[in-house]
Simulated assay, not measured.
Amino acid sequence: MNERLSLALAVEAVSLPEGRILLLRPPSDLHLEGLPGDPVAVQGFKPDHDALAARGLSVSPDLNGSHDAAVVFVARAKALTYDLIALACAQLPEGATIVVDGQKVDGVDSVLRHCRKFFDVGEVYSKAHGKTFSFPSSTAPHGWAAMPATKDGFVTRPGVFSADGIDAGSALLAEHLTGVSGRVCDLGAGWGYLSRAVLAQPDVTSCSLIEAEHDALDCARANIDDARATFHWEDATRWTGGAFDVVVSNPPFHTARKADPSLGRAFITAAARILTPQGRLLMVANRHLPYEETLNATFAEVRVLTDQGGFKVIEAKKPKRQRGRK
């Protein structure tokens, strides 16, 4: 359980007023005890959103209403963190409290140094490989609020996967989508690059974009104008839609900053679950990731279509019936 904020409040290193407290992208394991007032969260990552909601916290992917103070949780993407601080500054009255909490591995030390240049930062509380600090709200520095960006002809936002443009793995997979047809699912669709490539195929009847990051899905809606596309803010590993003729995927493989192949394995299992008996999965993965055992356990036919530039494109056909699967 992430207790650093609660501990910082308990020792009065930082303080929050009674009232409506805005939590910007809180982690799913945030320790909620000790938070004063009426905390409300903005969390656009579906698994964390659902976990927080299940714990009874008021949570939404979008910002709503007015607030008396805010807590910004440092994100892996530095540009996103500064955008969140700018959002808090714009949302709160002048002088209202903004608390920042984050891990060292996510760059909280750098964020602290930058905040000290522009804000009146108070006591810094260090605990559990991270820091918590606060300052009165004022006008955010120029450039901290994220502006709409277009990369390689696609709308992107800070914090989404490959925000700086098309990633090499997806580009390689796109080369193998020629001839895709029928009902297609883009599992972990991001801002829509692979789905646009899918929809360029004339025999595709529909394409369902499944994406856990709300901001990325908003970008996908801006990038794709095709009646065959549908957009679903869902955790791809738990989604129960189907049945599809083809699943395409560039699955994530990180939890925080650590490589976590179990995410990719969960995507493979999900693909097998939502495909028709004769369906196929087309996926790309970093060469070193050990997915073969899971692929062979869930599909009758598996082959590597190409292996280049550190990536492998894999085709898996005929999902095996798993025990308990209908």
Rank of each mutant, 00 (worst) to 15 (best):
L32T: 09
E12T: 10
D38Y: 13
H49R: 12
A69C: 10
V71N: 02
K78R: 15
S66K: 14
A41W: 01
A69E: 04
V59T: 07
V40C: 11
P36A: 10
G34T: 08
S60I: 05
S28I: 01
V71T: 10
D48K: 07
K78S: 12
A79H: 02
H31G: 13
V59C: 08
G44W: 06
A13L: 05
L24F: 08
L24V: 05
P47I: 11
G34R: 10
L16H: 05
R76N: 14
S15I: 00
L16T: 01
L22H: 07
P61W: 11
D38A: 13
S28W: 11
H49T: 06
L9A: 03
E12Q: 15
G65S: 09
V14A: 06
A70T: 07
V42T: 05
V71K: 03
G37Y: 01
L32E: 05
L23G: 00
A10Q: 12
V40D: 09
S28E: 15
H49V: 01
S15D: 12
A54M: 03
V59N: 00
L24S: 10
G19M: 10
I21R: 08
G65E: 03
A53K: 02
K46I: 03
S15N: 11
F45S: 07
S60P: 10
V14R: 03
G37P: 00
V14C: 04
L9H: 02
L23T: 03
Q43D: 08
S15T: 13
P47V: 13
L32Q: 08
A41Y: 07
N64H: 15
D62S: 13
E33M: 05
V40W: 12
N64P: 09
F73G: 00
D48A: 15
A77Q: 12
S58V: 14
D68I: 07
L63Q: 08
L52Q: 01
I21S: 05
A51G: 07
D48W: 12
E18P: 02
G19E: 04
D29S: 14
D68R: 02
D50P: 09
V71E: 00
L35N: 06
G44P: 07
A75S: 13
V72G: 04
L24D: 11
